[in-house]
C-alpha cells in the first residue's frame, strides 16, 4: 500500500487549530502508530499520551474523526474517511497542549461520587465471604473493569451541558461500591450521587455505553443508582 494518509491533528491549547500532515499508510496500522510517526519523523513538538500500546491502560484515548477512542486499538482502516483522519484531544476536558488533556476534573468527580471503597474490617478480622454467583456480585462484575480512560466522559452530552455532572465513569464506580456488601459508606454515597449533578441528570443517550472500550454499560449502572437512591428517599433515609 503506497497510499498516504492526510492527517489533521489538533495543535495548541483550547485556542488552537488543526494542522495537516502526510503520513505513509501501511497495512495493520493503528491511529497511535500514525501519531507516533508524526512526532518522531515530522514534528517532534507534538504532545500526546500513551503507555502500554496494547489496550490495557487507556492512556492513549483521543478523538478520532469526531469519536472518542483508544488510538492503540483503533485500526486506521476502521476509522479513516477515504484517506482522511482527524485527531484531536478528548472532549469535555481542558486541553493542556495538542492531544493531552487535563484529567484532574475527571478524577475529582470520581472522588466526589465517593468512588472509593470504604471497608469496615481490619486485618485482624476474618475475610469477607462473597459468592461470585450472587446477584450483587454479578452486577459489580459488569462494571468493575473500568480503567478510568475518560472515553465515556468525553462522549457524554450531559457532561458538556452541565459542568457539575459527575459523569458516567464516576457514577459507574459508585454503583459497583453501592452493590458491594463489604462497603460501609452506604447512605452517604447515595447522597453523593443523587441530584442533578449526579445520577438524575442522566438522560440515557447511552453514548457512554456505545463508546466504552471495555464494554461496560454506565447507563445501566446509573439506572441502578437511580433506583437505589429512589428507594432510600421513599424510606425517608436520604
Amino acid at each position: 500500500m503506497s497510499e498516504s494518509l492526510r492527517v489533521r491533528v489538533w495543535r495548541g491549547t483550547g485556542d488552537g487549530e488543526y494542522r495537516a500532515y502526510e503520513v505513509p499508510r501501511h497495512a495493520s496500522q493503528t491511529v497511535l502508530d500514525v501519531v507516533t510517526h508524526i512526532q518522531r519523523a515530522l514534528d517532534p513538538t507534538l504532545a500526546y499520551r500513551f503507555a502500554c500500546r496494547v489496550g490495557m491502560c487507556g492512556s492513549c484515548a483521543m478523538t478520532v474523526n469526531g469519536v472518542a477512542r483508544w488510538t492503540c486499538r483503533t485500526h486506521v482502516d476502521k476509522a479513516v474517511k477515504g484517506n482522511q483522519l482527524e485527531i484531536g484531544p478528548l472532549r469535555n476536558l481542558p486541553v493542556i497542549r495538542d492531544l493531552v488533556t487535563d484529567m484532574r476534573e475527571f478524577f475529582d468527580k470520581w472522588a466526589k461520587a465517593r468512588g472509593k471503597f470504604e471497608g469496615g474490617r481490619t486485618r485482624g478480622d476474618d475475610l469477607a465471604r462473597v459468592s461470585p454467583d450472587s446477584e450483587d456480585r454479578k452486577l459489580i462484575e459488569a462494571g468493575i473493569e473500568c480503567i478510568g480512560c475518560g472515553v465515556c466522559y468525553s462522549a457524554c452530552d450531559v457532561v458538556a451541558w452541565n459542568p457539575d455532572y459527575l459523569g458516567p465513569a464516576a457514577l459507574n464506580r459508585a454503583w459497583t461500591l453501592v452493590k458491594d456488601e463489604r462497603d460501609t459508606a452506604g447512605l452517604e454515597r447515595l447522597r453523593a450521587v443523587a441530584g442533578d449533578a449526579g445520577c438524575h441528570a442522566c438522560h440515557s443517550h447511552m453514548s457512554c455505553t456505545e463508546r466504552c472500550p471495555k464494554g461496560i454499560a454506565p447507563t445501566a449502572s446509573i439506572a441502578g443508582l437511580k433506583r437505589a437512591v429512589g428507594r432510600a428517599a421513599l424510606r425517608g433515609e436520604l
Partner: peptide, 18 residues
Amino acid sequence: RDANAARQETLLWIAQRA
C-alpha cells in the same frame, strides 16, 4: 443544603417517573 438538594431532586425524579 446538599443533602436537601439531593432529596428534592430524588423526589422530583420519583414524581416524574410515577
